[in-house]
Simulated assay, not measured.
Amino acid sequence: MIQSMTGFGKHVVQLPSKKITVELKSLNSKNLDINARLPQAYREKELELRKAISESLVRGKVDLNLNVEITGEETTAEINEGVVKKYMGQLRSIAPGDDVKLLEMALRMPDALKTDKNDIDEEEFRAIKQALKQALEKITLFRTQEGKELEKDFNLRIQNIFALLEEIKKIDPERIKALRERLEKAVSDLKVEVDENRFEQELIYYLEKYDITEEKVRLANHLAYFQETMNSKESNGKKLGFISQEMGREINTIGSKANYAPMQQLVVQMKDELEKIKEQMLNVL
């Protein structure tokens, strides 16, 4: 089973006087990169929230957005009356004006509002952690569903490469025959006498350099191992990436040894299928 690193999860908790919204978004990344946006009052709990995310999501660029909306009469901000009056007096001395306008200007000045920083209520933080847990479950479900779509595409590409490999196996004898005929013709065109035994030995040596038996076997093994890894219990995108690199090496070697147009055309199709796998591999957890 594979998972995507792309996902979204959101959960809302309604308390008597507050509405808490936890939102998670994730994209592909080589490692876990968490960007947390929290109200200032909740910054002291950031490490605990990050730990919960890292234990669940493992990899990806994750955005955490915690929004706390006050829905009751509760508020932690108050007008700093003494400071506001002093601002109004200073403004009045500079340019006399209407008290309402002076008040509007004074309220925009620094320290016009004061906030009592109280400790976070434990019950409230438990609600936040529960909301985060629910959001993590939703984003994990999202990633799993996206992973299923990726798995379908990977299986299709792997089967296509398997089919192309079978075509290569079928035409390989024709390729060797064509290579042999080409060499024999080149020698006959020279119109010189050659030692038949020596020529046969050199011909065999030359054809062995173009033998792709090992590459065909290794590529088939890599394809099977890729499918086996996809079907494992945990998603392992890095391992699948390594296997796809090995597949690419074998395909490139077959292409370099082919020296036969029909086989080279099949190799190009293999490379196209593998490139599509690699593109999607960037999203696999």
Rank of each mutant, 00 (worst) to 15 (best):
S4V: 11
G9K: 08
V12R: 14
V13Y: 15
L15F: 01
I20H: 12
K30Q: 08
K30G: 14
L38F: 13
P39D: 09
P39F: 10
Q40I: 15
K45N: 01
I53T: 09
E55G: 04
E55N: 10
G60A: 10
L66N: 04
L66D: 05
V68E: 04
I70N: 15
E73Q: 14
I79A: 14
Y87W: 08
Y87G: 04
L91M: 10
A95D: 10
P96I: 14
G97S: 09
M105T: 00
A106D: 08
D111N: 10
L113Q: 08
L113C: 03
K114W: 11
K114N: 12
T115S: 07
T115Y: 04
N118A: 11
D121H: 03
D121G: 13
E122D: 01
R126P: 12
A131H: 06
K138A: 15
T140G: 05
K148C: 11
E151A: 10
K152C: 13
F154T: 01
F154H: 07
L156A: 11
Q159T: 03
K170Y: 06
K170I: 00
K170N: 08
P173Q: 05
E181I: 00
E184Y: 11
K185L: 05
A186G: 11
V187N: 09
D189H: 08
E196G: 13
E200W: 00
L203Y: 14
Y205Q: 04
Y206R: 01
K209S: 02
Y210A: 07
I212M: 00
A224Q: 02
Q227K: 12
S232V: 06
E234D: 15
N236S: 07
G237E: 00
S244M: 07
I251R: 01
N252S: 09
S256D: 03
K257F: 01
Y260F: 02
L266S: 06
Q269I: 02
E275P: 03
K276I: 02
I277S: 06
